[in-house]
Amino acid sequence: MEQLLELKLLWAALVAYVLCGSLAIVGVVLRKRPERSVLALLLLGLALHTASIAVRWDRLGHGPFITMFEILSSNIWSLMLAFTIAYWRIAAIRASAAVVMPILFIMMGWLMMTSPGEGHFPPTYHTVWLFIHIGFGKVFLGAALVAVGLAGAILLRRTARGAAWFQRLPADARLDELAYRCMALGFIFETLMLIAGAIWAQDAWGRYWAWDPLETWAFITWLALGISLHARVTFRLSPRTGALMVLAVFAVAFLTFFGVPFVSTSPHKGAV
């Protein structure tokens, strides 16, 4: 049965991710550098995960955009992809994988608890704007995740143990600067995501903005991000304050993308 293949591939991917994450954490704690292996496992996991999503897409005739299972799976995929790119290109921050992977573990655990059943693909989803809007959103979340890894490292360093774990990472001020840049990038893509969403909404629901829960929360996230960026240029903030702001924004974003669509009953989930 095709669904079985898709689930097997997903399981394999998750195993790879968990191995990878564990390796990264162990490496940080024991001060080893299994970076090659971590990268290899990341790529393996991504490949398996891509295959799983592709099989499901082929079977259902639509992409992973409807049920909680699909959204979690596709977001884990894109967040992993974003982090893999950062891990590969910015060697100095690889230790922050020890912060990022646990977050993804939580999401994977949640994924395992949701039902892999099928959802109805609404007529309003038959448009290229679906991909554009969601694509921009994924880049935003990915950039935010990388920033969260750095912020976590900055905050953990306040403890003696944490300082020992992350001694290989550059100084707090540098990490803070990189986190700021990631959030700035995220801000641009979130702006584009809101624009694409409004374009989609205009023809899908007859109006480009109506303060429905997801729209409102997405805008709140945008405002939170804007406030944090503005605060950085208004005051001289310490890296710790900066890190706390990054975490706060990520928390709001997480709530927006994973909480709201499944709490509310408004049309944003996919109209009947």
């Binding site: 303060w211 409102t216 709140i220 405002l223 804007g226 406030i227 503005h230 605060a231 208004t234």
Partner: peptide, 13 residues
């Protein structure tokens, strides 16, 4: 500007 952004935040809610 920051005050305005915060007020806008409240306004959105």
């Amino acid at each position: 500007a920051l005050i305005n952004l915060a007020a806008l935040f409240v306004g959105v809610c």
